[in-house]
Structures are given as C-alpha cells and as structure tokens.
C-alpha cells in the first residue's frame, strides 16, 4: 500500500512538472504586449526592452523557469500585469476561492445524496416507472444545453418560489438557487453511474450466492450490492471535490457570484501572461492531486489493488 502510494505520488509530481513547465515555456513564445497592456502603444522599443530586462524576461529560459519554481515553492505566484496591475496573484485569487469551493461543495453534497438515492431506487426498480422517470431526467440534463435549463431555474425559481434572483452573501436564501443549479448535473451523473454499477452487481454470481446463503434482501443490498457499487464511484470523488475550486463560469456569472469561474477565460482574453500561468498551475495541480487521491481511495477500498504490480492495473 505504502509503496503504491509513493509510486503514484511520484508519477503525479512528474506529470505536474511537465504540464506546468510546458505552459510556462509556451507563454514565453507569446507576443510581449501581454506584459504591458494598453501602455504598449505609447512605449518606444528601448523602453520595452528595458522593462523586459528589468522583469527578467530576457534571461535564458531555464533561469526564468528556475525563478518561477523558486517562487512557487515560497507560495509566490508572481504579480498580475494587466488584470489588476502589480497586485500579487495570490491576493487576487484568495478571496474568490471560498465562494467557488463553497458552492461547489454544497452542490456535491446535494448531488451525492439526491443522485445516489435516485440511482439506488432506479436500480432496485429496474425497468419500472421510477427507473424510466430517472432516465428521462438524466437524458434531459445531459441533452439540453445547461444554458437553457439553468435560465429556467433562475427565472421560475425567483418568480414562483420568490427566491432572490442574484447572489448576496448576506442573504442565505440567495444561496439556494445557485447551489441547486450547480447540483442538477451532478445528480444525473451520480444517479446514472450508481444505477449502472448496481445493476452490474445485481447480476454477479456472488450476489446470487449471498441470496442462496439465506441473507435477507436488505442485507444483500446494503452489504454486498451497494457497498461494491460505491467503490468505483469513490474514485471520482476527490477530483470532483477539488475541481470545485475552479468554480462554474456560467452559474457564477448568472447569479453574479464573485468566484473563480471565468477568471481563466478572462485573463487569457486580456493576455495577462502571469495570471494565465498561475491559474494553469493551480487548475492542473488540482486535477492531478484529485486523480492521485482517487487512486489512493480506491486502493483503500478495494483489496485487489494493493497487490496490483505496476501500480495502475485494475
């Protein structure tokens, strides 16, 4: 188990290093306007060169990369050039994360409870009304563009239920619509997968044997079917939780939530190279750490993985 964890950790760190370095080096190929914004028009070539030298951008690439990693190690992601000039990036991001992550976590909690309950019900009543109704919901959520149904949620949620139409951090009621909106997709996701894994499990020989042993239906369901069906689901959980940091572009702009959603798109459009770099670092670490934790969780839950030679076999 320990060996497996260390091996996966090293793999993750290596992946992260490749991704971040690649992005960093690609950023160096961008036009230098990205470091000056509007000022660039009024600057002479000499001024531009002088500023670039001052920022260390004319040094060889390996020096720049080394400085960048040294900064990261100190928790310094550099300063924004355009988005909010000369403000440390960590200061720009820090106050936004709690909003995004807060909504994301609440949405996951709603999605897990409702989605798992729904999926378990669907699997137990396979082919019957509940299963079909659930399938309709899943297909609807996946097929209709979220921009459409989320607008309806906002519209009817505010007019019929009299919930606030925009987010206001001092009004708890205004949290409801965005959190619910954010969970709709997750509910469908969890319901669909838990149903699928449970139906798989129900047809397994060991479930037949568990019944033949005389275990009551309930015990078979809880101890054998549901437990086994949750295991493959657990793999995605850490990644989903960490991904909430990124926020939801659409929902955050719909309800004017000051979160992380859309920030990356924004800074790319405005060519704020330093911000892009920092955000890519954060988002890719979050993704990679999520996968790493998911694999560890699987290894904890599924005894077969501990023995798998080569680390990745499942």
């Amino acid at each position: 188990m320990f060996g497996y964890a260390v091996k996966r950790l090293l793999q993750s760190l290596f992946t992260l290093f490749i991704v971040v370095s690649l992005v960093f080096l690609l950023m160096r190929l961008l036009p230098v306007e990205g470091y000056f914004g509007d000022r660039f028009q009024k600057m002479s070539v000499g001024e531009v060169q002088a500023s670039l030298r001052k920022m260390g951008l004319l040094d060889p690439w390996y020096l720049q990369l080394g400085r960048f990693y040294a900064g990261v190690a100190r928790g310094d992601l550099g300063v924004s050039f355009i988005y909010r000039r000369d403000v440390p990036i960590t200061k720009i991001i820090a106050p936004r994360i709690p909003y995004s992550a807060g909504f994301g976590l609440v949405a996951i909690a709603i999605a897990m409870t409702a989605g798992l309950a729904m999926g378990v019900g669907m699997a137990r009543n396979k082919g019957k009304l509940q299963d079909r109704a659930g399938t309709v919901y899943i297909v609807f959520v996946n097929a209709v563009p979220l921009a459409v149904y989320l607008l309806f949620v906002q519209l009817y949620g505010s007019s019929l239920l009299h919930l606030p139409i925009l987010f206001d951090k001092y009004n708890i009621a205004s949290w409801i619509l965005p959190a619910v909106s954010m969970s709709l997709n997750g509910i469908a996701f969890y319901a669909m997968w838990i149903r699928r894994y449970m139906v798989d499990e129900l047809n397994k020989d060991y479930i037949k044997l568990a019944r033949a042993k005389g275990l009551p239906n309930r015990t078979v369901m809880v101890r054998h079917v549901m437990r086994n069906a949750y295991v493959p689901m657990a793999q995605y959980l850490p990644a989903a939780i960490l991904a909430t940091i990124g926020g939801s572009i659409y929902i955050e702009s719909l309800y004017s939530i000051p979160g992380m959603g859309g920030l990356l798109v924004d800074v790319i459009q405005r060519q704020d190279n330093a911000m892009v770099q920092a955000l890519v670092l954060i988002f890719s670490s979050v993704g990679i750490v999520g996968l790493f934790l998911g694999d560890l969780l699987m290894a904890l839950l599924d005894p077969r993985i501990k023995l798998a030679k080569g680390g990745g076999a499942r």
Partner: peptide, 16 residues
C-alpha cells in the same frame, strides 16, 4: 437447504 454454484472464481464477493 444450501446451494453451491458452478464457478468458484465469481462466487465470492471480491471486496470482503
């Protein structure tokens, strides 16, 4: 009345 099934490879729950 107890029963033993055909395939022992799949008759046991792999997670217990």
């Amino acid at each position: 009345i107890a029963m033993v099934f055909q395939d022992p490879m799949t008759s046991l729950n792999p997670l217990l």
